[in-house]
């Protein structure tokens, strides 16, 4: 049986008996996952390749809906409702739950337009407001000093680490409640990685963060809670220090000591 700690504080998301099946698959890729996600903290998802951690992450903003034929079962509670409902407004949901991808995804437009993109989608046209919020987002993403003199330049001219921080700025500019990070540093060098990790820790004061990572050290460095997943199941969820030092499940212990993975 899985060992899931009871989170005392307020939860941003509550996953209950969640199952996910890809189109045409005979068995679900996620099996009866139950997982509370604490508010204003960082929850890391670790586990070997194919364990379902990215599949779970992409369920929180219903990214799977872009490809027809996938099925959700169970419940993911967010702001008092089950977001898996057929009537869920996905556009609204995705402005509340933002996402950062493995590879930087700077749009083919200027740095300013990249950060302003989400706000413009929400109908914000006021120049001063846009300027202020773009600057604020870039400052919060620790990128302002590097780009303030070239906001009109093409965003693809930035380095990989800068582009990733640009994507973070773009995501926080619309003031989401939750941010999903899908292996955000696996395409970056160690110094850029350090910058992103620092940012993740800073951002949790304002947003709840879920981060998928292949790197256990990274999970230990940035997260408050860690979930270990294996073959589509959540094996263990606990305080990060406890999970890495005194895991309750045998599988978790074997994974974090490198017996498989």
């Amino acid at each position: 049986m899985a060992s899931i700690i009871d989170i005392k504080e307020e939860c941003a998301l509550n996953v209950r008996d969640f199952e996910f099946t890809y189109k045409g698959a005979s068995a679900p890729s996620l099996k009866k996952v139950t997982m509370p996600i604490a508010k204003n903290s960082v929850t890391a998802l670790i586990g070997p390749s194919g364990c379902g951690k990215t599949t779970l992450l992409r369920s929180f903003n219903r990214m799977h809906d872009l490809y027809p034929g996938n099925t959700y079962n169970g419940e993911i509670e967010f702001e008092g409702r089950n977001i898996l409902g057929a009537k869920e407004d996905l556009i609204h949901l995705r402005t509340k739950i933002g996402m950062i991808f493995q590879k930087p995804t700077a749009f083919p437009m200027s740095i300013f337009d990249n950060v302003a993109y989400g706000m413009r989608l929400q109908g914000i046209k006021n120049k001063t407001e846009l300027n202020d919020r773009v600057e604020k987002a870039l400052q919060d993403a620790a990128l302002w000093k590097e780009v303030k003199d070239r906001l009109k330049n093409d965003a693809n001219g930035l380095s990989g680490g800068q582009q990733q921080r640009l994507c973070i700025a773009r995501a926080i500019a619309v003031e989401p409640e939750v941010l999903l990070f899908d292996e955000p540093t696996s395409a970056l060098d160690p110094i850029s990685t350090q910058g992103i990790e620092k940012l993740v820790i800073e951002l949790k004061e304002r947003v709840s963060i879920i981060i998928v990572t292949h790197n256990m050290q990274q999970a230990a460095r940035v997260s408050d809670y860690t979930g270990f997943m294996y073959l589509g199941e959540l094996i263990e969820l606990g305080h990060t220090e406890e999970l890495f030092v005194t895991p309750k499940e045998k599988l978790t212990q074997e994974y974090i000591t490198g017996k498989f993975g």
């Binding site: 872009l66 995705r94 996402m99 493995q102 995804t105 989608l121 995501a171």
Partner: peptide, 11 residues
Amino acid sequence: TLREAAFALGA
């Protein structure tokens, strides 16, 4: 992923 990133912003 570029399309997904735009969808993820609520486009």
